[in-house]
């Protein structure tokens, strides 16, 4: 007889991975695709979300379930996680409550991060801004990697299982439902926003900021809102990824996986429209998954197959730029129907 977990694991792994990346790509599309803010440091806010997840729910759970105070979540990580998992597995309300609280707090922390970085968005030109945001994110990653009390430093920490109450067989179904429903909700809200006069305003700023100012738009304020909103989404992606992996390992939030790949997803799909972002994300996530399964058969390559993914990133970028710079689903003009 087929074990239900054997079916759910690959589906859930793929969908949750896709759902996390969809949020990252959506946030980038809001910044770069709609508003013209080039952000090479997307992983800054993702790290903020991951750190909130590492710090907040476990400590709260330790208080709620009266874990002995001599146990330290970082230093006695395995022991604390094992204790908490026993309680959480039989307490769905607390588990859901802690997760929702984490998502809300992380989104808030991400929005504050976005708000603070927006001061530089106002003052720096495109190239300087992109590099500055990259440097800022790298600094956050370095701190997260070497400062153990935050999220266990270089080796990271295991996280308690907040969907364990689904039972061992349906654990992956729980992850699937939680992560994909948050992503779907954010996708539809973003799509609604982008098809409103607010979306039109963003596109006008992208096209010519000075003109937008002269027709009365406070572009600095709008950019601040966009940075706060998209950074909030990125932080939620950080929460979901940490939950998905049941671990917070800050060094894994690097520029290639959590900035360059999402950029490629937006470029391949077509920037300035969320449907393109969706298509670009699912195409490249599928490709990366296929590559992961193919790696053992790539041993004939003159280099380690691990690097093949990175080389592929460059090749795809070049191909898209030369062959289809507007992406698979180009931004369409919003035409007014009627006579």
């Amino acid at each position: 007889m087929v074990n239900i977990a054997d079916i759910l694991i690959p589906i859930s792994t793929f969908v949750t991975f896709f759902a996390v990346y969809l949020l990252v790509s959506l946030a980038l599309n809001l910044q770069q695709g709609y508003t013209g803010i080039p952000n090479l440091g997307l992983f800054l806010s993702i790290i903020v979300g991951a750190v909130v997840t590492a710090v907040l729910p476990s400590r709260l759970a330790m208080v709620i379930y009266s874990v002995p105070p001599e146990l330290n979540f970082i230093e006695d990580n395995a022991q604390v996680v094992a204790l908490l998992n026993v309680h959480l597995a039989s307490d769905p309300f607390t588990s859901i409550g802690l997760l929702l609280l984490t998502i809300v707090v992380a989104a808030g922390a991400g929005m504050v991060t976005g708000y603070l970085t927006s001061f530089f968005v106002r003052r720096l030109d495109e190239t300087y801004l992109a590099v500055f945001l990259l440097a800022l994110a790298e600094a956050a990653r370095t701190i997260g990697t070497y400062y153990r009390p935050l999220a266990g430093g270089n080796f990271g920490i295991s996280m308690p299982n907040f969907v364990g109450w689904f039972g061992a067989d349906y654990y992956y179904l729980g992850l699937f439902i939680l992560i994909s429903s948050v992503s779907v909700l954010i996708f539809f809200l973003t799509e609604r926003l982008c098809h409103s006069p607010f979306g039109r305003l963003l596109r006008s700023i992208r096209e010519d900021e000075l003109t937008a100012k002269t027709v009365g738009k406070d572009t600095n304020r709008v950019k601040m809102i966009v940075m706060a909103l998209s950074s909030g989404i990125l932080a939620v992606a950080g929460v979901l990824n940490t939950t998905r992996q049941a671990a917070a390992v800050i060094p894994t939030y690097d520029r290639i996986d959590f900035t360059f790949w999402p950029w490629l997803m937006v470029i391949v799909g077509g920037s300035g429209n969320n449907l393109g972002t969706l298509v670009g994300t699912i195409s490249l996530i599928s490709l990366r998954r296929v590559l992961i399964y193919m790696k053992p058969s790539l041993s004939f390559l003159p280099f380690s197959p691990i690097w093949f993914e990175h080389i592929l990133l460059g090749i795809i970028l070049l191909l898209v730029m030369f062959r289809r710079p507007e992406g698979l689903i180009p931004e369409k003009p919003r035409k007014l129907q009627g006579p």
Partner: peptide
Amino acid sequence: APFKKLTVFENLMVS
């Protein structure tokens, strides 16, 4: 200095 990738109609609306 128009909003180049917006339609003429959108250029007016956003203004």
